[in-house]
């Protein structure tokens, strides 16, 4: 009986380990799927409008927010609003680096993700670059109500946007590379 009990306990432990392994593999599979889809979507855009739709879709369907604003850097360094979702009239039309809460993110230029405050006023700042040049910025405001945390893969998706979305959404990025 004791031997049977020991074997049962060992089997239970093995089942628990396998379940944990399956869970991790599912997480890894999800992560790779999300990154693959985002990169494929950005690579396949056929116009600036389609590029902006693709960014909106990636943020809504893969990250989980329908409140965002996209700014493009104009000559002179002012950032002008070129697209927004769910912001009504709240999105500022222009931003100046160093001025105000959002302008401070522009002058710092570093990606920002607030993992623990899904209901905060600003959940992510994504500088959009072509090489070392800052061509624009994506601000993600409130997350969807059921999206209670920003997962590590959300940070990876935002980093992918930071590195690769500028070409899809800004005419100036296409001029730089052509």
């Amino acid at each position: 009986m004791t031997d049977l009990g020991t074997r049962l306990a060992a089997l239970s432990a093995e089942v628990a380990q396998l379940r944990e392994r399956v869970r991790r593999l599912e997480q890894q599979n999800t992560r790779l799927s999300l990154l693959y889809i985002a990169s494929q979507r950005l690579a396949a855009v056929d116009s600036i409008e389609d590029g902006r739709v693709s960014v909106r879709e990636i943020v809504a369907n893969l990250i989980g927010s329908e409140e965002l604003a996209l700014y493009e850097c104009r000559p002179g360094g002012v950032f002008e609003l070129v697209d927004s979702v769910g912001m009504d009239q709240r999105a500022q039309k222009t931003l100046v680096p160093g001025e105000g809460h959002l302008g401070a993110f522009l002058s710092r230029g570093a990606e920002f993700v607030d993992e623990h405050a899904p209901a905060a006023d600003l959940n992510a700042f994504v500088p959009l670059r072509s090489g070392d040049r800052l061509l624009g910025a994506l601000f993600i405001f409130r997350m969807l109500p059921h999206k209670t945390t920003m997962d590590p893969v959300d940070g990876e998706l935002l980093h992918l946007l930071s590195q690769h979305a500028a070409f899809a959404v800004f005419p100036s990025a296409r001029r730089v590379t052509s």
């Binding site: 799927s33 693959y36 494929q40 879709e57 809504a60």
Partner: peptide, 12 residues
């Protein structure tokens, strides 16, 4: 109507 959502569902 979202290409991204369809890609995600197709992949899954």
């Amino acid at each position: 109507d979202s290409k991204t959502a369809l890609m995600m569902e197709r992949l899954l």
